[in-house]
Simulated scan of single mutants.
Amino acid sequence: MTFDRMRRRILKGLAASGLAGIAASSGYARFIEPFNYEITYTEIPIRDLPTEFDGFRLVQITDLHHSRIVPREEIARVIDLVRGLDGEMIVLTGDFTTARRRYIEPCAELLSALSAPEGVWAVLGNHDHYTDPELTARALARAKINVLNNANTLIRRKTATLQLIGIDDWSWGATDWARAFKGIDRRRPSILLSHQPRVFDMEETQGVSLILSGHTHGGQVSLPLIGAPARFAKEFRYIAGLYERHGTRMYVSRGTGMVGIPVRIGARPEISVISLRRSTV
């Protein structure tokens, strides 16, 4: 065999194996990882948390994005997984759909299967505003989901209370801080539901014990060595996981859905289980 002939055969083999690798990676990113839900467990210390809430278990769902690329069957799978997690409270941090009004009510209808001893609570995200915020809020309310639209409430256990606050989407200018925090005692433990993690940097959230957010999808694509390219954008500075500053902690869930390109790679969809722990520091 001549050198040129051998070279052509080797290059052809390398090309074939490369194409096979690309095809396998593409198939994984499109059909496997987007629906390979990871249930994460995180314990978060809360200063001066009442003993009655020590070990309190919240389950967070975010960024469902019911749409053509996230079908009804996958929303139902997520809900079935959540129902098996025995959350004492369920929180939904926005982006129920992506861009089409026709998906709002079917998504809410599926979510109506959720229940928890301390209720199911929700805030809206940027895509809910893009689609139809009023219809989304009404559909969730009909599904017996409590929408905290710049509002707060008290979760009670015996004589102890935990402050729960929800803000409407900051990026759409829908946040009303004064209304959301009306009556809140900044010296006592509080949890803030905010679709946008960017509020972590804002003066208004100082003193909040814990912020639960979504929005980022963990970048949706995270590459070896490089990480998630999206993290270089200011909007995605807090891309996933737990952050802490001056006593305020924030957990950013990767969420379960997709938007834009129908792939996930290196950023598995996430259902978050948060356990609160009493701390004195």
Results as ranks from 00 to 15, higher is better:
T2G: 09
F3C: 08
R5Y: 11
M6D: 15
R9D: 13
R9C: 05
L11R: 15
L14W: 14
A16T: 09
A16I: 15
A16Q: 13
I22S: 10
A23M: 09
S26I: 11
P34W: 01
F35K: 03
I46W: 06
L49W: 08
P50F: 13
E52W: 15
D54P: 00
D54V: 07
G55Y: 09
Q60R: 10
L64F: 02
I69Y: 04
P71F: 12
R72C: 14
D80H: 01
L81T: 06
L81G: 04
R83I: 00
V91R: 01
G94P: 06
F96N: 03
T97E: 06
I104M: 05
I104C: 02
E109R: 15
S112G: 02
A113R: 08
G119I: 12
W121Y: 10
G125V: 02
G125P: 00
E134M: 07
L135F: 05
A137E: 08
R138F: 01
R142F: 08
I145V: 09
N146W: 03
N146F: 00
V147E: 02
L148F: 12
N149M: 04
L154I: 15
L154R: 14
K158S: 11
T159C: 06
T161I: 14
G166E: 10
W172A: 15
A174K: 05
D176Y: 04
A178Q: 14
D185C: 06
S194F: 03
S194E: 00
Q196S: 09
E203S: 12
T205A: 14
L210T: 11
S213W: 12
S213G: 15
H215A: 02
G218P: 00
G218D: 01
G219A: 15
V221F: 00
S222V: 04
L223E: 02
I226E: 13
G227D: 04
A233G: 07
E235P: 01
Y238S: 00
T248V: 07
Y251D: 05
G257C: 09
G257A: 03
V259H: 07
G260C: 14
I261E: 12
R264Y: 00
G266F: 02
G266L: 09
A267Q: 05
E270F: 10
I271D: 05
S272H: 05
S272Y: 02
